[in-house]
Amino acid sequence: MERLKLILAGGNGFLGQHLARHFTHLGYEVVTLGRSAKPGTVHWNGRTLGPWAAELEGAAVLINLAGRTVDCRYNATNKYAIIRSRTESTRVLAEAVAACRNPPAVWLNSSTATIYQHTEDEQPANTEATGQLGRTFSEMVAQQWEAEFNLAYVPHTRRVALRTAIVLGADGGALPVMARLARLGLSTQQGNGCQWVSWLHIQDFCRAVEFLVARPQLKGVFNLCAPTPLPNAALMQLLDAHYRPRWHLPQPRWLLEIGAFLLRTETELILKSRKVVPQRLLEAGFRFQFPSCEAALTDLLPRLS
C-alpha cells in the first residue's frame, strides 16, 4: 500500500524535525523542503518556483514552517527579512498548490500566538473568536502572514492557520536556554513577572497537528497552546524549584534591555504578555497530555540535567 506523503516546508528546525519523526512513525512519507543541502532535504529558496514544486503533486498534507527567526534586533533590515521570509514562502507555496492537478488535501501554515495584543492580568485570555489583535511590529507580521495565506486561491485544499505559542522541548526552542540561565541563578522573575506566558509541550504540538490533519471538518485559525497559560513569575518559580541555584540574580527590565542589546535580540520575546487559550482545539475534542506547565517541565527538565 502506497504511503501518504507529507510535505514539510522549512522543516529543518526544531519543530520540523519533531514533526518529521512524528509523522514518519505514523507511516507517512515525509519530504522536507529546506534551504540547506542536508541529506533527505529537497532544496528550495522559499521565494520562487522550482523543481521542488513537483513534490506537492498528490501529497496528502502540506505544512509550512518557513520563516526567519525573530531572535534578533528589530532594525529595518531584519524587519524586512522577517516579513518577507513569511509572506514570500506562503505565496510561492500557494502558486505551487494552485498548479497541482492533484493538490494536497490540507495545508497547515504557521502563524503565531504573538498575533494577539499585550494582555494585562485582569483581561480575559485570547481565544480564536474573541482575541484582540495587536498593532506592534510582531503582531502586524503575524497578520500579514495570515493575510497572505488567506489570499491563496487553493479551492481544493483545506487551510488551517497555526497560531503557535512557545513550544517547550528538551532538544531545541526556548527551554534549553531558559534552563541554562536558571542553573546560573537567573531563575527570578523577568521584569515585573506579571506578563503571561502561553506555551505547549512539543509532544502536544505534534499531536495537535496530527489531530487537525485527521479531521476534514476543521479549518481556519487554531491556537496551538496549552489550556493553562501562567505568569512569568510562576514559570520562573518552577525552574527555580527544579534547579535550586545557590544564588538568585534579579532581572529588572533595565537590565534585560542591556542584555538584549548585547545579545542582539529584543526584550519583547520575554516581556510581552501572551495570554492565549486553545478554545477551538478543546471544543473539537483534543486532549492534552501535558495540560499544566508543571507537568510539562517535570517531563522535560530531567532530560536537560
Rank of each mutant, 00 (worst) to 15 (best):
G185E: 04
D240W: 14
Y116V: 05
L133V: 14
A20H: 02
T41C: 12
I82Q: 00
R158W: 07
Y80P: 09
L218C: 06
G34V: 03
I202W: 02
T188R: 02
A226N: 03
H22V: 01
R180M: 13
A66D: 00
K38N: 04
Q195L: 07
L49C: 10
V154W: 06
A66C: 09
H118W: 08
R163K: 06
A174H: 04
S138R: 12
L239R: 09
A94Q: 10
Q144K: 13
C194S: 15
G191L: 06
A113L: 03
Q117M: 12
N109C: 09
P302V: 01
A60M: 15
G58N: 10
I82P: 03
A208T: 14
P278V: 10
G193W: 09
V221D: 11
R91T: 07
A99W: 13
H248R: 14
S36P: 11
G191I: 11
P291L: 06
N75S: 06
R253M: 08
G11I: 01
W247S: 05
T298V: 14
E266V: 03
G46V: 02
A174S: 12
L262I: 04
G11R: 02
R3N: 13
A165N: 05
N109L: 09
A113Q: 01
A152E: 09
I115K: 06
A96L: 03
C206K: 01
S89C: 03
T119N: 04
E268M: 10
L26T: 01
N150A: 14
P291R: 08
G169L: 04
R280V: 06
A152W: 11
Q217E: 14
E57T: 06
Q237W: 11
T298A: 15
I258W: 05
R3Y: 15
H43A: 08
R135M: 15
Y80R: 15
L301K: 02
S138P: 13
Q237R: 13
N223I: 07
C293H: 13
L151C: 15
R158N: 11
T157G: 00
A98V: 03
T48H: 11
R21C: 02
H25I: 07
S292D: 12
V213Y: 12
E146F: 04
Q144L: 12
M140H: 14
W247N: 03
L304R: 03
A208C: 15
R183Q: 08
G185S: 00
L218H: 05
P51D: 15
E2V: 15
I270D: 05
L184G: 09
P124I: 01
P231T: 04
T24G: 02
H242D: 11
A129Y: 11
C72E: 10
G11M: 01
F288T: 01
C194I: 12
R158V: 10
L300F: 01
L6W: 00
V92W: 00
R183A: 01
S85F: 07
A233G: 12
F137L: 01
T114C: 12
H242A: 12
R180F: 05
L235P: 00
S305N: 15
P216Q: 12
A113D: 03
V277P: 10
Q17Y: 04
Q190G: 09
V197Y: 14
G173K: 04
V70F: 05
H156G: 13
N150E: 15
H248M: 05
L218I: 11
T77W: 10
D240Q: 14
Q279T: 10
P103L: 05
I166P: 02
W199R: 05
T265D: 00
R47I: 06
